[in-house]
Write a protein that binds this DNA or RNA. Structure first.
Lengths: 230, 230
DNA sequence: TAGTGGTCTAGACCACCCC
DNA sequence: GGGTGGTCTAGACCACTAA
């Protein structure tokens, strides 16, 4: 081995774990020792271990040292796709359609979910996303006009609110929920599904400095699967 | 500001983006220049930018430089919970029940999914996980006995296969899929749901050096939501 | 081929917190 | 208190690739 890089160190650690030389819960050598053993700088060991912590393999505490996680709760990363890109990546033609556009005071359920004051005006949008001619996703979108006033002047006839927001409005925090829901007649009609079909559903809320920007509920096409790797 | 740390650099970059000084698609200064501007070492800038790439905010190419991602595909991380821990975290009592245990040659659909040879023996397990007395998850588990022969001698009467595997069998790769399915009568009975109810479903496959270890399909309780943050 | 990021080093000081 | 990780520095060389 000519040079020991941080990737070599990561592989070394992982292989020791797989060989059960460092079983779950056990302690690893400290950074200085391991640097000597492997013949590299301490910073190299440090980076390797830091990344393994990010990946959920190790745990570190000052003074206590570095240990193999007892229950290796691996972390998975997934990227939230822009729907146009997801569809086009699969070789289909993306088509967007605005179904409804409406300005109103936020209904109660929305106000409480987003901590909005009473009589807060919101822009409601319903949109369909198609892959070729097949329905792909129904988007139920609410935009807080107090936070994003210039959304009111945008038509959303050809560009979807997701893409528009992503380019126009930055955010600081957000949450994402996934669940399964039975298709209401309304949803079923748009997605061309039998009533009560199981629909993969995603709800997204985003915030900019403690002010809510938008809430969206997305209903995916039949048999949609979200995939990620470990 | 006495010292500029990599976190300060990250915040600085993010705030420039939020102020639209560096809009999506635009180029940032190179590492050396930014180090001079902010008065810190190049390595500090480098780490800050590297983490922002991991978070899906920036894109970097050698020679071309660093840019704000045009479509900021934020990445979300979620931890795959050990089900016992998830239930106990919510203050409920975890209970496990083995419903079925069976050894057989892998059925065709499984063989093709896992690239198993013909007549490959597998261990099939059906398990229920309860939160208190309420059903929480039905687990349909298949373990490749060629890869994990000693699973055959383990009873799985009190310890679930997930926890057992996590501690006994390391893996190198895996995939995770989420979807929504309609409850079959069988699933509905175990989860105490109406027939055809929408069920949040997760499928997990893990590999150790190109050999499949296990495949599991998990059916979650009614109204289960998987949550993550951005 | 020149400019940019990617990585490594050796040393240093600091912050945390278990013993 | 002392051992451990957390971070920063200044400099160096390398690897990639757009121009």
């Amino acid at each position: 081995m000519i040079r020991t890089g941080y990737k070599d160190v990561k592989n070394h650690i992982l292989s020791q774990i797989r060989k059960n030389i460092w079983p779950p819960g056990s302690s690893l050598p400290n950074e200085v020792d391991m640097a000597v053993t492997l013949g590299c700088a301490r910073a190299t060991i440090s980076r390797a271990m830091r990344e393994l912590v990010d990946e959920g393999v190790l745990e570190r505490k000052r003074k206590a040292g570095t240990k193999v996680k007892a229950s290796p709760t691996r972390r998975a990363q997934f990227t939230i796709p822009i729907i146009r890109e997801e569809i086009e990546k699969n070789g289909a033609t993306y088509r967007y359609d605005l179904v409804k556009r409406n300005i109103l005071d936020a209904p109660d359920w929305l106000s409480s979910r987003l901590s909005l004051p009473k009589y807060n005006r919101v822009l409601q949008l319903r949109c369909m996303h198609y892959a070729g001619n097949a329905p792909y996703q129904l988007e139920d979108r609410w935009i807080n006009l107090s936070a994003v006033p210039h959304a009111e002047t945008f038509a959303f006839k050809t560009l979807g609110p997701n893409e528009w927001l992503v380019k126009e409005v930055p955010f600081t925090d957000g949450s994402l929920e996934f669940s399964a829901t039975n298709a209401t007649p309304y949803v079923a009609a748009f997605l061309n599904l039998p009533e009560n079909a199981a629909v993969f559903t995603s709800e997204r809320t985003t915030w900019l400095n403690n002010q809510n920007v938008t809430y969206a509920k997305l209903y995916f096409k039949r048999d949609y699967k979200m995939t990620t790797f470990l």
